[in-house]
Design a binder for these strands. Structure first.
Length: 408
DNA sequence: TCTGGGGTCCTAGGACCC
DNA sequence: TCTGGGGTCCTAGGACCC
């Protein structure tokens, strides 16, 4: 079988530097424009953690996911602000729209990062080196969205993303074709995408603590440890090999809402009240995206940080607070019965098995059973959504939700 | 230091069907 | 009567990422 040579791919990974911090400044420039020490995250009194820290704070050792209280001990002069959700979503959309003008093949990978496949656009951009095109894109993003980004580039997504960390902040780092293997060889094992604490510990137990030690192993050894799939994934990964396409923006697979209590809760009543707030929040998000869900999952995290969940898949897809809460309440009861602990730190609900519309099929048994959601249920939910959109989220069945109360 | 909230993907076992 | 293998869906849990 003869293979036609595939063109060398030109992939960019665009990553907004401290996106949440930049957006906080854009949301409140008067107060924050000249402030070098900004922490975005939960309140230090509660159990909040740092979502994003300005580079000024990072110089003090502050990192994201660190408890806010700890971060303030390291950097006491920092200003703590909540995530500016609306600005983040708007700038993220603007970034995505701008990038789509540079290439038809691109995808947002999260609110603050995107991939762009420029393969085939060489003539369009005057056969300029990838580095030159990247800097042009970077400049245009700055001018049109006011966002500072770093850009990594290479022949595949993995290498492009790894390259970005060498570009931060505000830089561009391109790995030339043919240099992928050497480039990845010089990277710390813990920075390899997909290698987290658990895999690192597993490797450590087997005496593998460095990238060079991992790369020295043959595929057969890795297969004997983990089986074919995982072994070949890691074998390719530590050599910078990745043929995955850039693709399109991903479709939503689940919608969830969860909350950590300021203090552990134990009474069923308190848990149900908190659960209702999460259901109202998740269902509103579901409807905003025009979706229905068939699977409902309730999650509890106990004082020892152990998670337990119960889920149920319904015969038809639903979207109203009433039905989702009724099912969630039963799942919670089941969880409380089975789990010996009586103190919980977190409760959440997740909606999965999503569908674009939920028209009942004709001529099936569903004609015989009454639907879970009557049209009037859905109309009521839609009406509440409209009122909430006008007045800022104060209506819910049974009262004010947790997140609404926080907004005050 | 004591651990958020939004997600995606994977695995493994069991049920059920062909 | 006994046995098998593949496919799909569901559930629970866990790893990982931003």
């Amino acid at each position: 079988m003869s293979e036609t040579p595939r063109p060398v791919r030109r992939i960019l990974h665009i990553d907004v530097d401290a996106m949440f911090v930049q957006c906080a400044v854009l949301a409140d420039p008067e107060r924050l424009r000249d402030e070098p020490l900004i922490l975005v995250g939960g309140s230090p009194e509660g159990r909040g953690v740092v979502t994003s820290a300005s580079y000024g704070c990072r110089a003090f050792g502050v990192r994201s996911a660190m408890p806010t209280a700890t971060a303030l001990r390291l950097c006491s002069r920092a200003v703590v602000v909540p995530p500016p959700g609306a600005v983040i979503r708007a700038r993220s959309r603007a970034l995505g729209a701008l990038l789509s003008e540079w290439s038809p093949v691109g995808a947002m990978a999260s609110v603050d990062e995107a991939y762009l496949d420029l393969t085939g656009t060489e003539a369009l951009y005057h056969h300029d080196p990838l580095d030159t095109v990247a800097r042009r894109i970077q400049r245009e993003i700055r001018e049109r969205t006011e966002l500072q980004v770093s850009i990594g580039g290479g022949t595949n997504r993995l290498v492009a993303k790894l390259a970005t960390s060498f570009a931060k902040p505000a830089g561009v780092h391109i790995v030339d074709p043919g240099n992928e293997d050497r480039f990845v060889a010089g990277i710390e094992l813990s920075r390899l995408i997909g290698v987290g604490p658990a895999l690192l510990a597993d490797l450590g137990r087997r005496g593998v603590t460095t990238m060079s030690a991992l790369r020295a192993l043959d595929l057969a050894t890795l297969v004997s440890w983990w089986g074919e799939d995982r072994a070949s994934w890691l074998w390719r990964r530590c050599r910078g090999i990745d043929s995955s396409p850039v693709g399109a923006d991903p479709v939503t697979k689940s919608v969830s809402s969860e909350t950590t209590f300021a203090h552990d809760r134990s009474s069923r009543q308190e848990l149900e009240r908190a659960l209702l707030g999460r259901v109202v929040d998740a269902c509103a998000s579901l409807r905003r995206q025009g979706l229905f869900a068939r699977t409902i999952t309730v999650k509890l995290r106990d004082a020892e940080f152990a998670d337990r969940s119960r889920s149920r898949t319904l015969a038809e897809a639903v979207r109203t607070d009433r039905v989702v809460y009724a099912v969630s309440r039963e799942l919670l009861a089941d969880l409380c019965q089975q789990v010996p602990t009586r103190r919980y730190r977190l409760i959440g609900v997740s909606l999965g098995n999503l569908e674009q519309d939920a028209e009942p099929e004709q001529g099936t048994l569903s004609d015989l059973a009454p639907p879970l959601e009557a049209p009037r249920d859905r109309n009521l939910a839609a009406a509440v959504d409209r009122i909430r959109a006008r007045h800022g989220g104060i209506i819910g069945p049974g009262g004010v939700s947790d997140s609404d109360r926080r907004r005050g």
